[in-house]
Design a protein around this nucleic acid. Structure first.
Lengths: 173, 173
DNA sequence: TAACTCATGTAAAAAGTTACATGATTGG
DNA sequence: CCAATCATGTAACTTTTTACATGAGTTA
């Protein structure tokens, strides 16, 4: 039920509309906990009914702004300090690596090189985000920065692995 | 629809029962494409009905062994060479990092140190798997080795990041 | 013979994706 | 006034998780 907590966390930071949240799921949270628009609005309704969030204001174009309630903050804290998250990891890209032996060597190597290229691209993009942002240094931004750095290191490491793997495949297969 | 292709890939390697597949989803594929027992048996039925796999033998205790058909091999190949996989990544552990500012500094740092510890543990475990395995050097095993190495590098990199992040949090928050 | 492993399934619920549907407001 | 953006929702479907249910063979 992490979507619920992702929304609670974002609302703990600042009251937002479904639309505002959506944009954050598409940008900063895109590589941490992606969510679709339909999911966000659905969860907002559930959270509201459960009393974990409430409408704190309305605006033009039917805009409804939600804020976190005390009950919501309590729920968020429980999740934050609760038993460690499972390291569940799913990657269709890596799944293909498992079955690369079904392809001719060059095709397999080409797949890995393309994978490397995408990761280098991602690495460059995330570094640009980091270097282009105005870091105010408040706790909220520090956490965002840490998560961003995770992505930067991860894409670098993955890109290097893929380069290496392409070489190994050529040599050993 | 990657579960389908994960099963096809495993059956392309060697005919297996649902139980055999399950064990592979719990071990080698656990950190690539985890799947539950109910999902595996359900997908086997669908694949069989679609003619992508077929029963190739039976054994004691109701055991049914499936093998991939030509149609299944074609489907697997299409997936393998098809448009690149999406880099969709979901991590509840990293989501928490985003919201670490909701906790006192020491608690946040403790979370990151624990995260680091878990990754070091995982790193040691995966290295032990690599060093303990008998690598025959055939294409199938080379691919498994590449995926394993991905996990080894990833857990190392993540562990180092978490150590570093804990320091940053103490300094900047 | 009891405990364990092997072996297969189903039902229900939760989570996530895709597609459709609508309308208000703003900027050029 | 036209296009883009803001803004919210729902319906159908697929995927994943959780829980229950059963039984055959193996080993101590």
């Amino acid at each position: 039920m992490s979507l619920r907590h992702a929304i609670l966390g974002l609302l703990a930071e600042t009251p937002s509309s479904g639309y505002d949240l959506m944009k954050r799921f598409e940008t900063s949270l895109a590589h941490v906990w992606p969510a679709k628009q339909s999911q966000v609005y659905g969860e907002l309704a559930k959270l509201s009914e459960a009393g974990l969030i409430e409408v704190t204001g309305t605006g033009a174009r039917n805009r409804r702004e939600y804020g976190i309630t005390d009950a919501g903050r309590a729920e968020l804290k429980e999740w934050m300090t609760g038993p460690g998250a499972d390291g569940a990891y799913r990657s269709a890209a890596l799944l293909r690596v498992f079955f690369l032996w079904t392809l001719p060597r060059e095709e397999g190597a080409a797949y890995l090189k393309e994978f490397a290229r995408r990761n280098q691209e991602r690495h460059a993009f995330l570094e640009a985000v980091r270097d282009g942002a105005q870091w105010r240094g408040d706790p909220v931004q520090v956490c965002e920065w840490l998560a961003l750095e995770f992505g930067i290191r991860g894409s670098k490491s993955t890109g290097e692995w893929a380069e290496w793997a392409a070489e190994q495949l050529t040599e050993h297969m």
